[in-house]
């Protein structure tokens, strides 16, 4: 038995023992992983605290962020996390596709496949939208922004228009690289997301 598989299956089986536990899985990239900040300071951990502080003690938030991940990983990762039978899936991918200048059509296709699978498995999906920095040019940034809107419309899923609202571009809320949020930035992101999803919990 491979160790990771064993641990993973044990981990995923926990919900069966504690039937009341609801899992919100956040599939994302470095933004979700909390690049540069501690695990407890990344927005998924803060989001869990918020949810539980609101009396919803049976909800846990799983951070499935991988730095550098693109939408190409979405389908495979959704398949993997579904072994843990999540109640809700928050999909915040696409940032790296944009930063690497990948074709928006390809990113859209990848996200579609992931949402389709989730809907087939009856797991509600919330889509986290991202914007590209203006230096990528108006054409590309507009197309990229539109992608999330169209996906949300097509699959009738809730959309958080811009996960980095009030964070992006402000050096007060970002690390020195100007891309990744710092501790204060993650707090705002957790607020933004919680506002959008609290009625779904």
């Amino acid at each position: 038995m491979r160790l990771f598989l064993f641990l993973a299956i044990s981990f995923f089986l926990i919900p069966f023992g504690q039937a009341q536990e609801n899992r919100l899985v956040v599939i994302g990239d470095s933004l979700t992983e909390g690049y540069g900040v501690s695990k407890d300071s990344a927005f998924p951990a803060l989001l869990e605290k918020k949810i539980q502080a609101d009396g919803k003690k049976n909800w846990v938030v799983v951070n499935s962020g991988i730095t550098g991940a693109t939408t190409a990983s979405a389908l495979g990762r959704v398949k993997w996390v579904f072994k843990s039978k999540p109640k809700l899936l928050l999909l915040i991918l696409g940032g790296n596709d944009g930063l690497r200048g990948l074709k928006v059509e390809e990113s859209e296709k990848n996200l579609s496949l992931a949402i389709e699978l989730a809907q087939k498995e009856n797991v509600p999906v919330i889509l986290g939208g991202l914007y590209m920095p203006p230096n990528y040019g108006k054409d590309y940034t507009d197309k990229f922004k539109k992608m999330y809107v169209e996906l949300a419309k097509k699959f009738k899923v809730p959309l958080i228009p811009f996960v980095l609202d009030k964070v992006a571009g402000d050096s007060k809320y970002n690390l020195a690289d100007g891309i990744h949020p710092n501790e204060a930035g993650h707090k705002i992101i957790a607020e933004t997301i919680y506002r959008e999803i609290k009625d779904m919990l």
Binding site: R100, G101, Y131, P134, N135, G137, A168, G169, G178, I179
Partner: peptide, 25 residues
């Protein structure tokens, strides 16, 4: 880098519209 480099005149940046609030540079 993942992308090839190009060189332009710095004076043209404003006109390009590429460097503004939110840009990463």
């Amino acid at each position: 880098s993942i992308a090839p480099r190009v060189f332009i005149n710095r004076e043209l940046l404003k006109q390009s519209g590429l460097i503004q609030y939110g840009s990463t540079f």
